[in-house]
């Protein structure tokens, strides 16, 4: 294993893959936790609506709630497919 790694240059280990996946997932789940309880449902509903018009990947729609002073800002990000 170790030798193989040497020859093939920087081959990503399964542990590195695990770390990367966990970091993405957990930061996402923490964001949902911080928001109000309806945030995951809202995200799902928005995704449905967007999908009626364009085909987007599930993970290309994200919403988050930020606090700015005494107001809350709902931020919606949709990555649209090219063309």
């Amino acid at each position: 294993m170790a030798l193989f790694g040497l020859f093939s240059g920087k081959r990503k280990t399964s542990a590195a893959a695990a770390k990367e996946r966990l970091q993405i997932l957990i930061s996402h789940e923490r964001q949902n936790r911080r928001g109000p309880d309806f945030l995951p449902d809202l995200q799902r509903d928005i995704l449905e609506v967007v999908k009626k018009y364009v085909s987007v990947r599930d993970d290309h729609v994200s919403i988050r709630l930020d606090r700015a002073g005494d107001a809350s800002v709902l931020e919606l990000n949709v990555i649209l497919p090219e063309n």
Partner: peptide
């Protein structure tokens, strides 16, 4: 061997 998350990985994540 890169087959298991290291203690530092787990600490970074959590």
């Amino acid at each position: 061997n890169g087959e298991m998350l290291s203690k530092d990985d787990v600490c970074d994540i959590l």
